[in-house]
Design a protein around this nucleic acid. Sequence first.
DNA 1: CTTCAAAAGTGCATCCGTTGCACAAATTGA
DNA 2: TCAATTTGTGCAACGGATGCACTTTTGAAG
Lengths: 203, 203
Amino acid sequence: MTDTGNGAAPAPMGRRERKKAATRRAIADAALRLFLERGYDAVGIREIADAADVSTTTLFKHFPVKEALVFDEDADQESSLLAAVRDRPEGRSVPAALRDHALRHRMAAADGDDRFTAFRELVAGTPALRDYAQAMWLRHTDALARVIAEESGLPGNDPACTALAHFALEAPRAAHGHDDPREAVVRAFDLLESGWRALAPGD
Amino acid sequence: MTDTGNGAAPAPMGRRERKKAATRRAIADAALRLFLERGYDAVGIREIADAADVSTTTLFKHFPVKEALVFDEDADQESSLLAAVRDRPEGRSVPAALRDHALRHRMAAADGDDRFTAFRELVAGTPALRDYAQAMWLRHTDALARVIAEESGLPGNDPACTALAHFALEAPRAAHGHDDPREAVVRAFDLLESGWRALAPGD
DNA sequence: CTTCAAAAGTGCATCCGTTGCACAAATTGA
DNA sequence: TCAATTTGTGCAACGGATGCACTTTTGAAG
């Protein structure tokens, strides 16, 4: 979770941006800790602000709504997903790029991570968070579909693009129950790969 | 007031239920009128309650959240949809029943109805309503998929059921842009019909 | 270094959706 | 007629979110 992946970007952040990011993290951390301790609905905004030692106004400058405190990394995940398709190596197909991304990011925290499973239970057990996550997922598939359309030259509203986006985000979910999740993901994407090749040869 | 005292009346609804339905309608009508006049966000709950001459407490007894005021007929539409599949004539296929229902209910208000287009613009132009409608649509497809599974004897989580439910609710949407929407709907359902027949012959 | 403007944060009052509570009125059944 | 349930009311309050005026911090220009 606390991964400031600095593979090729040593983060040229000035002191200002660093402090901003720090308070943001302080808020999100305090919020998640309290939520996990006592449940989402039992923790108020003012309380979180106190725990992070900021005012409620500041809190809402960083997170537009309460639910966003839980899905802190939403924006990062989405841009990382889109980048995986846009900046894929020359000659690599879109489904292949999505498979790589899924194996690298989605499955990492899947096995045996207490913190992560607690997080999932928190979301699953809170209607407000379930709804928010669902809406988030739809936004991601939409954005992904648009990028796929751009990259493949197909019309933006082509059902094939939305379907591929849909399946690509669904596959890691479905693989969770399997004994070997990684294998299941690879299989699923092989299926998409062959189907996609027939439609958009070369991309 | 108006005493319709009738000795052996079949009385589908008692006086009480009728009054309850009346206040419900009064609230929903007042709300929709105000929303269309001045926009969803510009009208407060207390104002609507005033216009309908009830207290806010009473308002929330009828509608759990503000958005529900707009989608008043949500529950009715869903049960009507499910009933169209469950109570379809003997020997009629599921897709055919869905097509009939779509042509009868979904397209009726589609052409040239000022009131209806204004309603759609209201929803489309209000993020909160868009989100709510989206979530509603997901609930409907889920419920429909379960009924289809029951009726066809397929396992409840069979992708074919969810897919059929998805497409059946999507078809009327997609047909809106066409010059002849009814024809487009018929075509779409013909497609579903043939595909379905291969999977569940007899249902 | 000084100065200045933008950014970040604060404190406070307030709005608004929503809920809980105690209570009155209507309705029903005995 | 007398309870008991249902339905509606008035009011106060809670929690989220916003607007405003204001101070502090920061980056950079002069």
